[in-house]
Structure formats: structure tokens, C-alpha cells
Amino acid sequence: MLGCFTLPDAEPGAADQLLTDLAENLSRQGLRVVGALQVNSGGSADCACDMDLRVLGDTGPMIRISQSLGPGAVACRLDSGALQTAAGRVSARLTEGADICILPKFGKQEALGLGFRDVIAEALHEGVPVLIHVPIEQRAPFDAFAGELAEWVDPAGLAEWSQRAVRQGKAA
């Protein structure tokens, strides 16, 4: 199962906080939650915030996926190599067993076939449900990738969808 949602009019970071709260709640219920959560912090003169990924179930450090490009820079600040490192660490957690995989978003890197795209496919192949945020601007590339596998979920119903997906995964 591939659950996805969008938050079209939300404040920046709202989807990250929603997924963090959900992952913590599911973990408290005893579920093996793997994936990654984005943590936005601080900021500096040349960027609005620093972006890190916390790999769930991994004792390693958070991975900084943003890079400072200097004042006045207009290019993407994403460190694509760091994102691939995070994807590799999530993949390693999948091989140890999981009830559900939560990923921060289907972004530009995933649209290009990179980032967490292979992790999504790996989890689904292993029968592990995946939940991911899809920003509105990535809807078309996500639809092309996921096709009929995608199940759009109302953000208010993410916990219920997750519980149902885990039950169905265990029954299969």
C-alpha cells in the first residue's frame, strides 16, 4: 500500500511535523516504523533553515541534506548526495523488518528517479506499506511514478490509514 497526502495551503514544515507526530505515535503503539523524518532548524543569513533527516530505527547521526550556497544564491540548496546516503540507511532498516515506512516527501529528486524512489519500490516489494507527503508541485511526477498504487489519504486520517495498512500487510 502506498499512502500519500498533500497539504496545499499549510505552513512550511507542517507536513514534516505531521509525519513526526504520526511516527512517534505508531512507535509508542509498538509498531516497527522505518523511514526518515525531516527536521528543519535554525537558519542563517543565507538560508531560511537547515534541513536534516532523522533515519528512523537508526542509531547514526542525523544527515544534513541542505547546504549553504552563500548569500544571494538562488540554486537548490539540497545536497543530493546526502539524500542518497539517507536513502541507503533507510533501505538497510527495511531489511531488518518493518511494519510501515514513513518518508518525508516525494520531491524533485524522486521525480528524477533518485532520493527515496528506490526505497519506496523496495518497501512495496517487501509488502511494507509506505506513507509519503507529496507537495502539490510534484503531483504529476508522483502520479506518473505511482499510478494506481497510490491511495490519497486525507491528512486528518493518516493514523487510521496507517493502522489499516499495517493490519493488511500483516494479513498478507
Rank of each mutant, 00 (worst) to 15 (best):
G3T: 06
F5T: 10
T6M: 07
P8S: 05
E11M: 06
L19S: 13
L22C: 15
L26C: 13
L26F: 12
Q29W: 11
R32F: 08
A36S: 10
L37T: 07
L37S: 08
Q38R: 12
Q38D: 09
G42T: 11
G42Q: 14
G43H: 06
S44G: 15
A45R: 14
C49H: 11
M51T: 07
R54C: 12
R54G: 06
V55G: 03
V55Y: 02
L56I: 04
T59D: 09
I63V: 06
R64V: 08
G72H: 04
A73H: 02
A73Y: 03
A73K: 02
A75E: 04
G81P: 01
A82F: 01
A86D: 00
R89N: 00
R89T: 00
S91K: 02
R93K: 03
T95V: 10
I100C: 11
I100E: 06
L103P: 09
F106E: 01
Q109K: 07
L112Y: 03
L112F: 03
G113A: 10
L114D: 15
G115F: 05
V119L: 09
E122M: 09
E122A: 11
L124D: 03
E126T: 09
P129A: 11
I132C: 15
V134I: 10
V134D: 00
P135W: 02
I136C: 08
E137K: 06
Q138G: 03
Q138T: 01
R139I: 05
D143E: 15
A146I: 10
A146H: 07
W152G: 10
V153Q: 12
D154A: 15
D154Q: 14
E160C: 08
W161Y: 08
Q163F: 12
R164Y: 07
V166S: 02
Q168R: 14
